[in-house]
Design a protein around this nucleic acid. Structure first.
Lengths: 187, 187
DNA sequence: CTCGGCATGTAATCCGTTACATGATTCT
DNA sequence: AGAATCATGTAACGGATTACATGCCGAG
């Protein structure tokens, strides 16, 4: 999955986003994944704890002991300045074609954290580039639909479902951008 | 990923579906994935060839030499009776909540091959159970939206996108079921 | 006869899953 | 003390990715 060694997994970014404002323990992070079924991430301990250790090893998060509740005392993780920088860089990334075509879930996860961006402009940029790529991908898929006229009915119908869902997400992006605009202006 | 040892990966089912009617070589299979970006599967040789060997080892496909074109002669894979049975069992599976919540892409891939099912009834069953699970998941997500009223705006908006896309897919399923019904009756 | 492109395969690495094991605190 | 519960891990394993290596044919 990693192209450059600086790349992190989606799960790692999710963790960074979740502890960005509220420090949390591994257990609390797991609960978030399990209860909200966030983007389909499973929150198995075998995924989360290793991911937290990778982040800690990279100096992006720091854990400190916490005792107070019942049961075994946990470790509470908070972002380091380096971690904050990595999170912000992630949030500021432009949306690519591959993001909308191959990793739409991860992209929406990123959007969910965009409120933590250093500037409200980030949301606008995100939505604008997302709309552009969605439009491009949409016509790409419609072209593909043309070229597979002879394909089995079910395959064509499945492709139509994909096209429809891209159109749906495009409508979402446009209305959300308008909503956020209004929110920003009336403030 | 495997719960029972009889479970196959999504990629393996995709391969079974693709060679179900037309025997193909690994290279041709790769091209399908690359060109149509099927369900976001990458079609890297490091994934496809091992998957084909697993299927061959399991007796689900059989390869035979093919020479004729230019370049290195390829091996052409076709389904064995056992492979046909596994494919049919996959196509006949009822749609579960996890299918629509966590693996919608894989589910749509399955639909794309439903035309190869042993009975046209399979499509109806598939769509009916899919509609039921989509409805259930939809209300589940709307409940979740209620309970996170205090969450950050962006997170709520992301969830709304998910809800909308489920509704969109539900509309798709209903219209497709009607369309297939008409097609079946006029025949 | 070797060069380029078609086609198959391998190796290293990494992440996620499942299932299990362990630690620490409070309640009875 | 022992059970229950909260919380953190570990081990084995499988599959996907990337990048590289190999084999075989026809054209010049």
């Amino acid at each position: 999955m990693r192209k450059k060694s600086t790349e992190r997994t989606t799960l790692e970014y999710a963790l960074l986003g979740l502890i960005c404002e509220v420090p949390r323990s591994g257990y609390e992070l797991r609960k978030v994944f399990v209860e909200t079924a966030m983007a389909g991430y499973s929150g198995s301990p075998g995924a989360i704890y290793p991911a937290l250790r990778r982040l800690e090893a990279g100096g992006l998060v720091a854990g400190r002991a916490r005792h107070g509740g019942p049961g075994r005392p946990g470790r509470e993780f908070r972002l380091t300045p380096a971690g904050e920088a990595v999170l912000q860089a992630w949030l500021a990334r432009p949306v690519t074609r591959d993001d909308v075509a191959l990793r739409l879930d991860a992209l929406m996860l990123r959007f969910a954290f965009l409120g933590f961006a250093d500037s409200p402009v980030r949301s606008q940029e995100f939505l604008e580039s997302m709309e552009a790529e969605l439009e491009g991908f949409h016509t790409e898929l419609e072209d593909q639909l043309e070229t597979i006229r002879s394909a089995p009915v079910h395959a064509r119908l499945a492709l139509e479902a994909g096209i429809s869902s891209i159109a749906d997400r495009l409508r979402w992006a446009r209305t959300v951008r308008a909503r956020l605009n209004d929110l920003g202006e009336e403030k």
